[in-house]
Write a protein that binds this DNA or RNA. Structure first.
Lengths: 134, 134
DNA sequence: CAGTATCCTTGCGGATACTG
DNA sequence: CAGTATCCGCAAGGATACTG
């Protein structure tokens, strides 16, 4: 993909994003930056179907509140399916929807690139902060 | 790319992201969800090098404060280069760094997918909100 | 077990006015 | 022209306690 091809493809995507009055598409993109969304999508991608508490145990540091909240957001955007078994004690399982699996696929290039370039970001920040301190 | 391949590739990326103690990599990913970062990266990708005011004019609705702030963040992460001509009146130009161009390339699949599936998200939300209202 | 409810801090995004 | 300074409302994220 050469430079012109990059430009051409970003043009269409960005015009559509700009025309997004209510911010829906951009809100979907925030899942990429949210504190727990990324990990949950990944976890469900790997494990298929998991219970609420099981996700909580595997996600280091997440609180019940944020876990529930994040799952609700993902469910609302149609990325995650929620199965309530209506039992006592409660049993609820979560899994990726087809949309969620697709999102996982399309986020991987970005994730991978960010991870590979982490050192570059870190160095740039240190340089920037050092310049600011003058 | 089959299901197993998806899993394998997301595994490595997500483990690296999870190990990110100070949240640097995740902070870089928030550029994807920030209100103006996306449009600025796109704009500079298309136009090459632009002055501050020129970006402001082309980005509908952005205030000076948010424009400056967003540019600073992008600069700090090494995605955008800032050229101060040290003139009176002031003249400052911005352009994508090599890192910035790479990010543009790697975000395009995600952007495109989100735009193409916007209807799916919208329908899912409407259904979800309707269920909640019961 | 799978959540709510309450309170708190932080940062995003914006409005407005001012400056070298 | 390219910013700063100061104000504000809102939502993200978290700590803690409680509930069916």
């Amino acid at each position: 993909m050469d430079n012109d091809e990059i430009i051409r493809r970003s043009q269409a995507a960005c015009e559509a994003l700009s025309a997004d009055e209510d911010g829906l598409k951009r809100q979907v993109l925030t899942h990429a930056g949210n504190r727990w969304s990324l990990g949950i999508v990944h976890l469900l991608g790997v494990n298929g179907r998991l219970r609420h508490a099981e996700i909580g145990r595997r996600m280091e540091g997440v609180t019940q509140r944020m876990l529930t909240r994040t799952l609700r957001q993902l469910e609302r955007d149609g990325l995650v399916l929620r199965h309530d078994f209506q039992e006592v004690p409660p049993k609820v399982e979560y899994q990726l929807s087809e949309l969620g699996k697709q999102m996982l696929v399309h986020m991987i290039p970005l994730w991978t690139w960010v991870v590979e370039n982490a050192d570059g970001f870190r160095r740039s920040r240190e340089q920037f902060d050092a310049d600011q301190a003058l």
